[in-house]
């Protein structure tokens, strides 16, 4: 892997954000809107549910962490879609850039987006609701890392699907993350899910992250079991995403689909 080619991809995508207000909005607009609407709803509900003090912490913590996962996934898929929209794929594939280098470049972009989103939502949560996300302590960083890893694996899979099926698969870039939301137990414990969905939730890294987050808020301490599961599953997800992407790339080169994507 050549770092200068990875940095070329980073340069290309960062250049887009220099003068594009709409692209900048994508990083900030939705997370801020979510945080405000659901944060104030939570404040309102809390008046009726006076006996649940960590309610706002559950909800805001979940909102902030969910956005991290979503931005991590989008950072990769949207960067790839930018190449499809600008009909630039052929230029990349005839260059010495390897797929791994391209993905590494989009991972850097994704990380920059995640940091920007986190800083904005964290600050607003503190200003509006006096909620300090760092009250989650050291496990917060491990939760973030796991959500980023899961976001990347879903992003790489989505990229493979877009490469293979073209813009028809674009909807996956926007919607696939939300498929995981109900079974990730973002805003409620896994225990409230029906037994079948509980079994599915067990195999999703994010459900362990959110369970871990609630454990920290409720009891403090270190959610070792949940984090071990999350890291283990993420390892499998990343491997699976890598295999899926390589398979899609082979298919695309076999069927000559790259030539069509350039037209």
């Amino acid at each position: 892997m050549k770092i200068y080619r990875v940095m070329a991809v980073v340069y290309r995508h960062l250049s887009l954000y220099k003068r594009s207000l709409t692209r900048l909005m994508e990083i900030i607009y939705w997370p801020v809107l979510d945080l405000m609407v659901w944060g104030f709803v939570t404040l309102y509900l809390q008046k009726f549910q006076g006996g649940l003090p960590p309610f706002i912490a559950f909800f805001l913590g979940a909102l902030i962490l969910w956005d991290i996962f979503f931005r991590a996934q989008q950072g990769i898929s949207i960067s790839f879609l930018e190449e499809v929209w600008s009909r630039n794929l052929l230029n990349l594939f005839v260059s010495p850039l390897t797929p791994l280098e391209f993905i590494a470049g989009t991972l850097v972009i994704s990380l920059i987006k995640v940091v920007a989103t986190f800083l904005v939502t964290m600050t607003l949560a503190y200003i509006f609701y006096s909620f300090n996300v760092f009250s989650l302590g050291f496990p917060l960083f491990l939760f973030l890392l796991n959500l980023i890893l899961m976001g990347w694996s879903i992003g790489i899979m989505t990229t493979g699907a877009i490469l293979r099926f073209g813009q028809e698969a674009e909807v996956m870039a926007w919607g696939l993350a939300f498929l995981f939301q109900p079974v990730s137990a973002v805003f409620y414990p896994v225990a409230v899910l029906p037994p079948v969905l509980q079994k599915i939730a067990w195999w999703i890294p994010s459900s362990h992250v959110f369970e871990g987050m609630r454990e920290v808020i409720n009891q403090g301490g270190f959610p070792a079991k949940e984090l071990i599961w999350a890291f283990g599953l993420n390892g499998l997800y990343i491997l699976g995403a890598g295999f899926f992407f390589s398979w899609m790339l082979r298919e695309v080169k076999e069927k000559g689909l790259l030539l069509k994507s350039g037209e």
Binding site: Y4, Y11, R12, R19, E82, E83, N91
Partner: peptide, 19 residues
């Protein structure tokens, strides 16, 4: 085939020069 349309001519050339 095109090139990233939202980049300037220079930015596009720099991107490929880096690649």
């Amino acid at each position: 085939i095109a090139m990233p349309l939202s980049l300037t001519v220079r930015e596009n050339m720099v991107f490929f020069a880096m690649l």
